[in-house]
Design a protein around this nucleic acid. Sequence first.
DNA 1: TATTAGCACTCAATATAAATGAGTGCTAAT
DNA 2: ATTAGCACTCATTTATATTGAGTGCTAATA
Lengths: 346, 346
Amino acid sequence: MKEKILPERESSILTAIVHDYIITGKPVGSRSFVQKYSLSISPATTRNIMYDLEILGYLMQPHTSAGRIPTDMGYRFYVNSLLVSYDFMRKQDATVREDALKKEIQLEKVYSSITKMLSTVSKYSGVMLAPRPDFTVIKRIELLPLDNNEVLVVMVTRTGMVVNKKVVISATVTQDGLHDYSKYLTSELCGYPIFEIRHSVIDRLRSGKPAASIRDLALDIIQLALTGSDEPELYIDGIENLLRIPEMVEEKRLSSLLNIIEEKNILKEILEKTIDTEGVLTLIGDEVENEKVSGCSMVTSSYKIGNKNVGVIGVIGPTRMDYEKVVPLVDYTCNVVSDYFTKMSK
Amino acid sequence: MKEKILPERESSILTAIVHDYIITGKPVGSRSFVQKYSLSISPATTRNIMYDLEILGYLMQPHTSAGRIPTDMGYRFYVNSLLVSYDFMRKQDATVREDALKKEIQLEKVYSSITKMLSTVSKYSGVMLAPRPDFTVIKRIELLPLDNNEVLVVMVTRTGMVVNKKVVISATVTQDGLHDYSKYLTSELCGYPIFEIRHSVIDRLRSGKPAASIRDLALDIIQLALTGSDEPELYIDGIENLLRIPEMVEEKRLSSLLNIIEEKNILKEILEKTIDTEGVLTLIGDEVENEKVSGCSMVTSSYKIGNKNVGVIGVIGPTRMDYEKVVPLVDYTCNVVSDYFTKMSK
DNA sequence: TATTAGCACTCAATATAAATGAGTGCTAAT
DNA sequence: ATTAGCACTCATTTATATTGAGTGCTAATA
């Protein structure tokens, strides 16, 4: 959809109006507007311009004798005309620092610290769609005896994360036996992503030339360890923040929000749709095509491992969100996350 | 503090009033009260009794011409006179089933599923103070090479949980070397709780008779792996639920609540204080001696490993909480958790 | 003596009416 | 094109009844 070109003055007034509304949350009226910004045009002129902008669909009036508020299209214009400045990021030291993440070997903690940080800095709610577990590339497998017939499967991923699974087997095996299994599995499966292991590698190995006797049981164990859903997990943080925003609390928007939190699937779907987008994506109001999140906006960006998009991070807030700060925040964080995953996977 | 004995009729009226207020949240007036419960006494008599109960401190009036609401003391009387019935627990299949927990080897997930369940069933907020990490008894230690000079320390606890730590060392060691270290560490440290290992066992081993050359580096590694805070972690779930309760949302109680969620320390302290209590503890309103949580009540219970109290679970809600359901819920869940931990640690 | 009908009184909550003020659109003059 | 001026609109605020569920007290009743 092509955007109409607005004359300079109209454009800057529109931008200013949207900006003002984002800050104050109150409809912007002509008189107080020119006064506040000491403009050199009269309220009447402003009114005329506002009228034009309303006809064009950028502004609307909540009721006849009120000031103007931006439509979704108005926000869109504002966001598009935003020359994103990363200045304020320098002042923020609460940002994710890559080296802080590096110490962590538990995926869940990495994810939650990223969302926590997004919500803390933005003062809205931070979300993260984790990479599909199936894309994880296995680097090393170690089997350890736990109990009579329980085996602990320790899998080290290419990104340096460690995943544990408990597997119950019928046969009993010695510790030395398991040690051999581990070597076998590591040598055969190292470098493969989980989905390949599940769908082809195991079958290939099974039907291959009759190998050592260890083969079948070892494969049984890893097969069990890799069972489980391939759903990418969704992390949310900072819902409390949204409750500090008046227009969120009002009406039934609150309960609609709580529903979303409870059934994360809706959000998951929305985020999954955006995964192939490059750069920061702002979804304003109804652009998020889901009536349950009407009145909300999302700023998202897909992070990568290497040059493949594997997941999405983002911030959810009211339509009246401080895009000027959130956009660079999401962009910056996304880069950090991409770098982190990419470096780790080398 | 000894409780005054109330005559049968007074007592049952008080109980009924508190009950009614818990359900409706509205001050209970004499006329509608007798009507609603088709009592055989007149409103006037009820008023007299209410007056007495007010003098005794069980009830109060929000304003002169309103009905009565319970004081903290009134709630206390109600809770004390509660003959806890576990009937409804049978109908709840959303409760934690021990066998569901048994499949899990990640402590964090066990904890969060317990709190999630507490909040889901109670419709309030579920909390859990996890056992101090230092009390964990080590059953088995395994060292695996990760990278050049990074070692993955896998610790299996007596309760069957698995804890991973990454340790960076200066020396380089072979895989076989690590294997020997593992054996050494397991044989020396198995059966000791972490705090003993930290405070005495390591020292003792170090100063013992000069052992194999592996000793010192092995001890270095485990020492690094065991560094870290001994703070018991706090898990919270279902804050959303509290936002559905009118009196929580009103005034600044909401923000006070959000603060608590943000700095978990306050709650931690409160819960830690209760850890040596046996059975279910109800803290009503100001009995939680912290002005930040005024207007809230907590129902808690300490769970055990063997016969030692190691942590606390509980439910946080408004003073006007449905104690009749929450008390058995917390009690029951606590038993399940105790049994679970105890069985696992055998 | 314990209970209750009756009555005057209170006061939050609700409904109704008036006043305010920030906003608009339109027109005519600059 | 811009703007001063003016009549008009309407959410918000303020002021003013009205209502109704509640109380306490007193005197009659069982």
